[in-house]
């Protein structure tokens, strides 16, 4: 597959990258402490995007399906976490620290388990029958499921925003030379990192994880090895649902959410998955942190910075740029379809 790129297009791509580097270095020189503070924010965006992007990439890897419903599952999971944490467990800003942390952990575990089941259910009801149908049929179905999930969220939670942003204190852990780091930021990483370690262990080392990788690489061959393909696909959806729920809770603790929060965030996470090379788990994280950092830099830096009004244009500009310059993504392999 030798696709020829016109010289001026790759020159343009290179120019963009050079501009980006100059802009970052300029900002760093201009105000190193601001740069580092913003970088911390970007890591948190990246963590949430990454947890959602992994869901897109796992499902694409195993079914070659872009599961448009995934962003909406994420949003619904955040709202359900709100119900668990705020309505049922009654955690407020005044709760004792230990109670708050315990409440959040219980919510995390329950929400992850519940949305693992929900996502596996979605596959069973909506996608399983379409497995050998044309791709377009499954894709349209995914769009349909996206609307259904979003409207379930609307029906239950109405158009109001829910928030639990005050539960983790925003007090500083350390301040040094204008650089500061807060508990609420650390908390996001304290959840994300163990979840990612568990996921890596599951995919690399367990029997089911190996079955997942094998099924993603060749479904028929996997079946011939004695792998229960249906069960493996169910487990993949469950895994994606659990990851989305962990992201939903983290998002809820940082931002307001409502029924349609998943639309945009889902698209951003999908972009991250494509940027990293869809189907590739490490790639999804790389893409997510790249986009998270770009967003934070764009919204937080001050030296020649477009500002938050431009965030969406930039993120989706990146999507278009990848599709033009490197359709297989940063870590992806060229597939026969060239996607």
């Amino acid at each position: 597959m030798n696709r020829r790129r016109p010289g001026f297009v790759s020159a343009l791509g290179l120019a963009l990258v050079v501009l980006l580097v100059i802009w970052l270095v300029g900002n760093f020189v201009n105000s190193p402490s601001e740069f580092v503070n913003v970088l911390f924010i970007g890591l948190n965006y990246g963590a949430v995007y990454g947890l959602v992007a992994l869901g897109y990439t796992i499902i694409y890897g195993i079914l070659q399906l872009i599961n448009f419903a995934h962003g909406d599952v994420f949003a619904l999971s955040g709202l359900v976490s709100w119900t668990l944490l705020v309505s049922w467990l009654g955690i407020t800003e005044d709760s004792a620290m230990l109670v708050t942390v315990a409440g959040i952990l219980i919510t995390l575990v329950v929400a992850m388990a519940f949305f693992a089941a929900v996502n596996a259910g979605i596959e069973f009801v909506a996608y399983r029958r379409l497995r050998s149908a044309p791709r377009l049929a499954a894709l349209i179905t995914a769009v349909g499921v996206s609307f259904i999930v979003q409207n379930v969220a609307l029906a239950i939670y109405d158009v109001d925003f829910r928030s639990a942003t005050g539960l983790i204190p925003r007090t500083d852990i350390f301040v040094a030379g204008g650089v500061s780091y807060q508990w609420n930021k650390l908390f996001v990483l304290l959840v994300t990192v163990p979840v990612l370690i568990l996921l890596t262990w599951f995919v690399r080392a367990t029997r089911q994880g190996k079955a997942m990788r094998a099924t993603a690489q060749d479904r028929d061959a996997a079946a011939m090895m004695g792998i229960n393909v249906n069960r493996t696909i169910s487990i993949s959806f469950a895994l994606a649902g659990a990851l989305a729920a962990s992201a939903g809770l983290l998002y809820l603790l940082s931002f307001n959410m409502r029924y349609d929060t998943g639309f945009e965030l889902g698209l951003i996470a999908f972009t991250a998955a494509v940027l990293g090379g869809i189907g590739n788990l490490t790639g999804a994280l790389l893409g997510a942190f790249t986009i998270g950092l770009i967003q934070a830099f764009n919204e937080g830096l001050t030296w020649y910075t477009p500002g938050s009004d431009w965030t969406r244009s930039i993120v989706f500009g990146i999507l278009i740029a990848i599709l033009v310059f490197r359709p297989e993504g940063l870590l992806g392999e060229r597939t026969p379809e060239g996607a």
Partner: peptide, 9 residues
């Protein structure tokens, strides 16, 4: 199987 169908990666 025909065409080997190994897990390439």
């Amino acid at each position: 199987p025909e065409g080997r169908k190994l897990f390439p990666r």
